[in-house]
């Protein structure tokens, strides 16, 4: 296999940057002396991966070291979180995780780590709004109409989601709770297939992140009812918020945050928080997030305190909802 053409070898050499491997001594003051790995618990190309790569670039520039994004998939993100929890607390392994960090304890009773005790928070990154959407020929025209339609036809309406523990399932649980009826959930293996069937009219409605639905709402392939955040979304000016449209209980966003193992020195955490702040103020990051239908969090949210508060609040919110619904991740 070493007899590759010189051209190919050259090309590989030309486009891959050279970086040293292996960890160094942990002197917090000198951090970072080596490349940093951002562990993403979902597949490359997904929304979480995209957000991570967006902020990794300006953060790397600010920290003066390369940041490598590594995708460790599996079990609703718990494989990645478990891996980072067990790493050396030297700041070279950073976990990016979303709302799933707060639902994991309820979904996975035998979780081998604790989101609150085994990690230090760096700061929140973005809160991606969700949208309530339906197939384009679904009868109701507004969210209010939809709620009463769903109540009347509870036994025929189908609610798609992207699988156990996915943000779309969580949002669906909130909707069911708010409307007060159990609906027929149709799970899919990820958002892509679920949206495909929604566009194709095989299922009635679902709730998913703007990152996935904005394009199809704009083109009219699916019908948008509302966004699930207190503020409207710039890319979708016609959609009211759930609060304005009469379903204030359904307030949910897919919040993302960065974590390091619990024993990491505060000095390193501070450096990462500072770099995150710089990244979130970067115009390119702001622009690209806007294209995704989201924004960086406010400056005071990109801090360990705000992040920890959010995590605690969300664990308290989701644990009873998940337990009541009897959902389990195994």
């Amino acid at each position: 296999m070493n007899r590759r053409t010189p051209l190919a070898t050259l090309a590989v050499l030309a486009v891959t940057s050279l970086a040293a491997c292996g960890g160094g001594d942990a002197d917090p003051a000198a951090y970072p002396e080596d490349e940093i790995t951002f562990v993403v618990p979902f597949s490359a190309g997904g929304p979480t991966d995209t957000v991570t790569r967006l902020i990794a670039e300006p953060m790397a520039e600010e920290l003066g070291q390369q940041i490598v994004v590594q995708n460790v998939e599996g079990a609703g993100g718990t494989v990645a979180a478990g891996q980072v929890a067990g790493e050396d607390p030297d700041g070279y392994q950073v976990l990016m995780h979303h709302i799933g960090m707060s639902t994991a304890p309820a979904l996975y009773p035998d979780l081998e780590y604790s989101p609150l005790e085994d990690f230090k928070t760096i700061g929140l990154v973005t809160e991606v709004p969700m949208t309530i959407v339906a197939r384009k020929d679904f009868e109701p025209e507004t969210l209010e109409e939809m709620v009463s339609y769903v109540k009347e036809n509870a036994d025929t309406v189908t609610l798609a989601n992207a699988g156990v523990g996915a943000a779309s399932q969580l949002c669906g649980l909130l909707i069911e709770q708010a409307v007060g009826t159990d609906l027929t959930e149709v799970p899919y293996d990820g958002t892509g297939p679920a949206l495909t069937d929604l566009v194709g009219g095989q299922v009635d409605f679902m709730c998913d992140q703007t990152t996935n639905t904005t394009g199809q709402i704009q083109s009219g392939d699916i019908k948008g009812y509302a966004v699930t955040t207190p503020e409207p979304v710039e890319a979708l000016p016609d959609l009211p918020t759930t609060a304005d449209a009469g379903l204030p209980e359904v307030e949910v966003s897919v919040w993302h945050g960065l974590y390091v193992p619990a024993e990491t020195p505060d000095e390193i955490v501070e450096k990462l928080t500072d770099a995150l702040a710089v990244a979130l103020a970067d115009q390119n990051v702001i622009d690209q997030m806007a294209d995704l239908g989201t924004t960086p969090v406010a400056e005071d949210q990109a801090t360990p305190d705000a992040h920890t508060a959010k995590l605690e609040e969300q664990i308290d919110l989701w644990t009873p909802i998940i337990e009541d619904a009897g959902v389990t991740g195994g």
Binding site: A44, G45, T50, G215, S219, Q288, D291, L292
Partner: peptide
């Protein structure tokens, strides 16, 4: 899966893949 990776690439480049 390969197409899903490409969606990510579109998004990173600031393009929302879709009918538009």
């Amino acid at each position: 899966p390969v197409m899903a990776l490409l969606v990510g690439a579109f998004i990173i480049q600031g393009i929302t893949p879709g009918p538009n």
